[in-house]
Write a protein that binds this DNA or RNA. Structure first.
Length: 278
DNA sequence: ACCCAGGAAATTC
DNA sequence: GAATTTCATGGG
């Protein structure tokens, strides 16, 4: 993998196992917007960039080589060999092999922990389209404007100052008080997100579940997508159906140390094949 | 009108 | 304690 400067950004060559739509629009992140030409625009770590994939060349516009080293290399999880992991976990079950083959360009992003926590609190009993709208309004109303009409995800400290009434503009309904409780506990130090990266998995789960509105599923998603705990195996309505129909008698433990990656292959495969569950 | 959405809290039995 | 209901909002 090599990174050089180009017009308005950088060009990374030798990129494997990445499909932007499969990775950025598969329900793990809610802030990327696909453009006409297949590129994506989005904000992460306070940077507004456009990413475009041409073969095995990834262009990141509005980014520097320094940003790639400090942010984007890790964000796209280029330190992991997904081809090798796919080969390994595909042996576990033929349907998993099928699901992995269906979308080999999925990667688990390394998103910011608080943003991940907050967006998955919003995700509960909700649909992806509406989640994106609520997250967008959250950023527009309470995030820092980093460019003309482009907003960073707000900090926990900022949200902790607000009241439920202030969040009415989000139209997030009953989730408003959960959003505020999470912000207050993170900003106040009652919940230590950094500890969740390395703590024993069950302890990390318990730490997050101190927050009202965080149960097992939201905790698992936060750990998987925000702390890169790839052993996590979140079970939502889609995964429940998928496990019952496609993997009867199995559970997350049967998918090993890369269960979270297996989970994303299965989740995406299931959402793209709803007829399997009629 | 009814049902569902990357669930969890509150209530009831 | 386990099963059921409720919680806002929007789209199909």
């Amino acid at each position: 993998m090599n990174c050089i400067e180009c017009d308005n950004g950088i060009k990374i060559s030798g990129v494997n196992d990445l499909d932007l739509a499969q990775t950025l629009d598969c329900g793990q992140s809610f802030r990327w917007i696909e453009q006409e030409d297949g590129s994506f625009k989005g904000v992460a770590y306070g940077r507004y960039v456009t990413v475009k994939l041409c073969g095995s060349d990834l262009y990141i516009y509005n980014a520097t080589k320094e940003d790639f080293k400090n942010i984007w290399f890790n964000y796209f999880d280029f330190g992991l060999d997904y081809g090798k992991i796919r080969d390994e976990i595909s042996k576990i079950h033929p349907v998993l092999n099928e699901a992995a083959k269906y979308a080999p360009g999925i990667r688990i992003l390394r998103q910011e922990p608080y943003e991940t926590l907050c967006t998955f609190i919003i995700s509960q009993n909700n649909n992806i389209k509406r989640i994106k709208g609520i997250v967008q309004r959250l950023c527009e109303n309470f995030g820092n404007e980093i460019e003309e009409n482009i907003f960073a995800f707000p900090t926990a400290e900022k949200i902790a100052e607000l009241t439920e009434n202030d969040l009415a503009v989000l139209r997030a309904g009953f989730r408003n008080r959960y959003i505020i409780d999470a912000a207050q506990k993170v900003a106040g130090g009652d919940v230590d997100l950094e500890k969740c990266r390395t703590a024993d998995y069950e302890d990390a789960r318990k730490e997050l579940m101190k927050i009202t509105g965080v149960g097992v599923k939201v905790a698992d998603c936060t750990l998987l997508f925000g702390m890169h705990r790839i052993e996590a195996f979140p079970i939502d309505v889609w995964m429940k159906r998928a496990m019952e129909k496609l993997f009867p008698g199995m559970n997350g433990d049967d998918f090993g140390r890369y269960a979270g990656i297996a989970q994303q292959y299965i989740f995406h495969y299931s959402r793209m094949h709803p007829e399997l569950f009629e």
